[in-house]
Design a protein around this nucleic acid. Sequence first.
DNA 1: AGGCTGTCTCGACGTTTTTCGAATCAGAGA
DNA 2: TCTCTGATTCGAAAAACGTCGAGACAGCCT
Lengths: 125, 125
Amino acid sequence: MSKQAPALTLADLNAGKPCCAPISEQRIPAETAAVLAPAFKALGDPVRLQLMSMIASAPAGEICVCDLTPEFDLSGPTISHHLKTLREAGLVDAERRGTWVYYRARSGIMRHLASLLHIGTPASV
Amino acid sequence: MSKQAPALTLADLNAGKPCCAPISEQRIPAETAAVLAPAFKALGDPVRLQLMSMIASAPAGEICVCDLTPEFDLSGPTISHHLKTLREAGLVDAERRGTWVYYRARSGIMRHLASLLHIGTPASV
DNA sequence: AGGCTGTCTCGACGTTTTTCGAATCAGAGA
DNA sequence: TCTCTGATTCGAAAAACGTCGAGACAGCCT
């Protein structure tokens, strides 16, 4: 699974605490930024953002690659590559069942990212 | 390659509605993804994520470039380039006052992005 | 077994991004 | 005016990225 050996991963961050301070309340240190940035980067492509949305909003909580691919004017390998990026960013999990592979969102991570971006009420800033 | 001028911008999206459905509740269409992705992409770099955090958490609600630059082992032009990226992504506003330029976060946009990522509270975590 | 289908890996390509130094622009002050 | 400082733009080079076709792998079904 881990091809590289980063000192810290997104999952580690999430495991440590239920959440984190929004970036508007506390300046994030360089190490934290290095761990978080790849997750945002993964969402920073229109295709991956759509994929993430399709996965996260799948009625069954998961969705087959075979349902994802035909929604784009892109080759199978390209979609597979984007899914791998999402996987390596820690945003989704994949599971093979027979011929098909199903993806599901890692909601804890998603919540983590949402909290980071959240800004309190304008007045409280 | 070079696409046509984007018919829609992040600011437009935000102006339309106070917020939007989280991607976990509703699959986002391609056009929306195309508008949103650049914002996440802008946050997808460790330097920019730190810059964003410093700007968003600035006590006065704004911060001078002269206070940002010395915090990194990067050249002035490089920091300036990242700030431009943040600006063009619609995440921050810049204002020149005399010799110095001040940046402030566009909290409406930030809230918008946070809401998008937010996942309700399904039984499974 | 053999073939078929769905998914992923590999190698390659053109494009985009990150970074720098040099040059330029904007304003303050002598 | 002329100079100094802060910030941005310009031009270039290396690295990373998005995309593809070809091939490999995994699990069905005759």
